[in-house]
Every structure is written in structure tokens, then in C-alpha cells.
Amino acid sequence: MKIEFPYETNQLSLEYSGRDETTSALKEVTVCFPKGTISILGGSSGSGKSTLLNCLFGLKRPTKGTIKYEGHDVTNWSNRQWAELRQNEVHLVTQQTVLFPYLTIWENLCFVISPRDKEQLEQAAHLLESMNLIQNKHRYPRELSIGGRQRIAIVRALLGDPNVVLADEPTSALDEENSRIVMDLFMHYAVKGTTFIVATHDPSVMTYGHHCLKLKDGEVVNEVS
């Protein structure tokens, strides 16, 4: 059976030039992320985990090397092409949870789906129940804890069954039980075909990885599948 790789990078590098020196955020990262799996990006702060996710999401442009998505070279895509990919196929969970403060939790979720799509509305309600948040659907983000808002952001990222979810420290504000619930959901969606690329420091999250990478100073120093 042929293994599919939604994302592939080849010799991916990103450098920042200052007055006196050049800093390498990524150094010739070559990696394939298998479809329907959870890939873990490990490493200390500043190792390049978030930078790699941002490159895969089109928020940062590499200095050299290539990014392929579903076999297509997307390295030099336009902002419009990246925006379409983000809207339809690749979703991101950031470290800083971004929700509309003037909308309720339910309205925040409905903002990213069609209010006439019964299937997605049912999915949103099911995900809120799975996260033990259904009772908070009519509250505003400010009324939830940081962990509660983080879980809402994860629900939003899973809506519409994206092809890929990029998650940057998705359990950083969660306790052990809620971290387990989130990762069990990721595993459930991975079985259905969604590919997860997760940057984390959390050892319990790492145990869910089918494919684990360790980064150090922008380089992949260890890879286990």
C-alpha cells in the first residue's frame, strides 16, 4: 500500500538577517508527514517547531528549499492561494487563542461554517459535548478560562474535517484530563484520515505520536516512526 504524504519539505531553510549576523531559524529540514497520522514536533523553546508550522501554513516564507502539499510545490504560492488552502483544507491551532470577544462561543464556531449546513452544526455541537463545553455555548470568550478558550480553538480547527491540522502547543493550558480528551479526539480524526502535525513540550502528548521529530537549533536531530 502506497503511503501518502500531505506535506513534504526538502532542504527547507529560513534565515533572518541582522546588522551584524544572520540567524538560522530552520536549517535544511527534509521531512515527510504521513497522511492520517499524528506527527510530533519536539524540542526546546527556540528549536524551530513553531517556525516550521508557520512555514507549512504559509505565514513565513523559507529562504530556500521547498514545501509540497499533496504533491504540489506551494513554496512560492501567492497570498490568495495560501488563503484558499487555509480556508478549505489546512487549519491551525496557535499558542495564542484568537476568538472574537464580542461573539458567543457558538457564534464564534458558526462564523467559520455555514449556518445552513446541518451536518457541520451537528459536528460543532458534538465536539463541544466531547470537550465538556456544550453548557458554555452561549457564553463569551472572556467568561471562559484560558484552557476553555484553547479547547474552543481546537473545536474550531476540527470543524469541516480538514485534511491537515497544524497545532502549536495545543494542550499548554490544559490539565491532564482535558489534554487526554483533546489527544483522543485527534486520534479519532487521524483514523478518519486527517493529518496532525503537533508541536509540543508535553511528554503525555508525545505518546500519541505515530511519527516523532526532535528539533534543535532549527535542525531535525532525531526522527522516529
Rank of each mutant, 00 (worst) to 15 (best):
I3E: 13
I3V: 12
P6N: 09
P6K: 06
Q11G: 13
Y16R: 06
S17I: 10
E21R: 11
E28M: 00
V29C: 05
T30G: 12
C32M: 14
C32N: 14
P34S: 05
G36L: 15
S39C: 12
S44F: 12
S47W: 00
T51V: 13
L52H: 05
L56E: 06
F57Q: 00
T66I: 03
K68L: 15
E70H: 08
T75P: 00
T75M: 01
N76F: 09
S78M: 10
Q81P: 10
A83N: 11
L85T: 09
Q87A: 12
Q87D: 09
V90I: 13
T94R: 10
V98M: 08
W106G: 07
E107S: 05
L109E: 00
F111G: 11
I113G: 04
I113C: 04
S114K: 05
D117T: 00
K118Y: 05
L121K: 14
Q123G: 07
A124W: 08
A125D: 07
L127E: 15
L127P: 15
M131Y: 06
K137T: 06
H138K: 09
P141D: 14
R142V: 08
R142D: 04
R149Y: 06
V155N: 07
N163D: 15
N163K: 12
V164C: 03
S172K: 03
S172Q: 04
E177G: 02
N178L: 13
I181L: 13
V191S: 04
K192I: 03
T194H: 10
T195N: 05
T200N: 08
P203V: 09
P203C: 02
P203Q: 11
M206H: 03
M206W: 09
L213P: 10
K214L: 12
K216H: 11
N222T: 11
E223P: 01
